[in-house]
């Protein structure tokens, strides 16, 4: 488990080639108590990108060098979950559609009202926090699962498939008493409070998200 450190506080990462825009966005974030970091280009952001830092990315579409959409593709390649809010002065409908289809959280056209952007940023940060919490929980379940012996894993699969102990015993050619012992260990190691809880945890890994 990671300790609390300042990096766990959400940060609004601002990527825009226009310095006055960057500065005014940063001021806007600070004015409502959000911490912000600015980058003058996509490459510069990519260099500093740390998947463990929560928050959201406010990204200009049109920039010299790597465009905002190209940065989105690069982040998708590394399975980044940081939500992206695109900002553009020259957007059109197909561009907005493509951005969201490729996983952007939002797309906003200039000029916008400050409050409109802040609302979208807060929504994205909330979404990011909930995604990360889910991810953490999934990892936690995976870790518990890794502590099971191969035999216990077999029993777990059969339990989750809804087989009663008697059937599992016959399947694995062991006594029912042995299955009961395995079952108790599985429940204990998975820290499952009930059969339903156990099934939920395993299903979570089978269909993530």
């Amino acid at each position: 488990m990671k300790k609390d450190n300042p990096a766990d506080k959400p940060t609004v990462f601002i990527v825009d080639d226009d310095e006055p825009v960057r500065d005014s966005l940063k001021m806007l974030m600070r004015s409502v108590g959000l911490s912000a970091e600015t980058f003058s280009g996509a490459a510069e952001f990519l260099e500093a990108y740390d998947p463990d830092r929560p928050g959201c990315l406010v990204l200009d579409i049109r920039m010299p060098g790597m465009s905002g959409m190209e940065l989105q593709e690069k982040l998708n390649e590394v399975h980044a979950i940081l939500p992206i809010i695109f900002i553009t002065g020259h957007g059109d409908v197909p561009m907005a559609v493509k951005a969201i289809q490729y996983g952007a959280a939002d797309f906003i056209q200039k000029p916008f009202r400050d409050q409109d952007l802040l609302d979208r940023i807060n929504k994205a940060i909330e979404q990011d926090a909930s995604n990360r919490a889910q991810l953490l929980e999934t990892r936690d379940i995976e870790e518990r699962l890794s502590n099971l012996t191969p035999r216990e894993k077999e029993v777990l699969e059969l339990i989750v498939d809804g087989r009663p102990n008697k059937v599992i015993a016959a399947d694995l050619e062991v006594s029912q008493r042995t299955v009961e012992i395995h079952r108790a260990r599985v429940m204990d190691k998975m820290r499952a409070s009930s059969l339903a809880h156990l099934v939920r945890m395993v299903m979570r890994l089978r269909n993530p998200g």
């Binding site: 059109d92 409908v93 197909p94 559609v97 969201i100 289809q101 959280a105 797309f107 056209q109």
Partner: peptide, 17 residues
């Protein structure tokens, strides 16, 4: 753009002008 973004955020497959 706003209608397109809202529709896609709510899960529609596509929004075409």
């Amino acid at each position: 753009i706003d209608d397109a973004v809202k529709a896609l955020q709510r899960g529609v497959a596509d929004y075409i002008e």
